[in-house]
Amino acid sequence: MRMENNVQDKIAAAASTDQAATVADKINLEGASKTFHMRGQVIRALQAIDLSVRREEFVALVGPSGCGKSTILNLVAGLLPPSAGTVLYDGRPVRDLNRRVGYMTQKDTLLPWRRAADNIRVALELRCRPTSHSEADEKVARMMELVGLKGFENHYPSELSGGMRKRTLLARTLIYEPETLLMDEPFGALDAQLKLIMLDQLQALTQQRRITVLFVTHDLGEAITLADRVVVFSARPGRIRAIRNIDLPRPRDVFRIRFTDVFARYHEELWDVLKDEVTKGTDI
């Protein structure tokens, strides 16, 4: 146990040595921290974090509830300014909203007055993305099929299940092919079987379109299955406890990889770190 912790600390240390912003980095957090002031109360959501995500890399963030994972995504999307430190995207500080990322938020942000298909289509209706009507129709149909929502085109969000809403949100984010995806527990509401199918689709899509992904999840297995690197956070205020490279060849067999020995070793190793934090977490 002691030896293992030692190893993990070394891994974390090694990961933080190559933090210098290089051209290949898509996202850099340099000493970025976040403190909220709320009704005279000071909430430290995130300690100073150093983390970089390389171009086309898939990085998964795991950690106890309330440790600041969503906050990190908000920083990268430019929805929140860091309280200290800097957030770089393509080597430049994120100032206003970061329009280069597609953000699938933890919260459901579907437009309630639009049907599922029209929700998915909304990004293609914008002036910055001129799309002909027939092309948009075709893309929407393809996305609906991809996320398994064929036949639900005309349902309003209130007429869809939680998992279906998540999938609609996913389709809406993917349809305009953003170069970077920020995903906040995108598959939390899905059953195990459907989750695997969606993971498979996501892997294929991000590989094929060479998308950079920052993926928040509380499911360690999901993180290992998909990610090039898994980052484990401490309980609030979040700080990086460990970063682990997942050296599994791609494309990965999403359905079977969970039963391999390598996977089990990764899982055990990361779970050891995570479970300490989860039990420490005051938010649960």
């Binding site: 909203l97 597609g102 437009l111 914008l126 910055c128």
Partner: peptide
Amino acid sequence: DLVQSLRLMGATRIEVLRK
């Protein structure tokens, strides 16, 4: 949050107003 999600997609202020 709906406004922000549309703005992140690249919507202009007029588009946010309309949509």
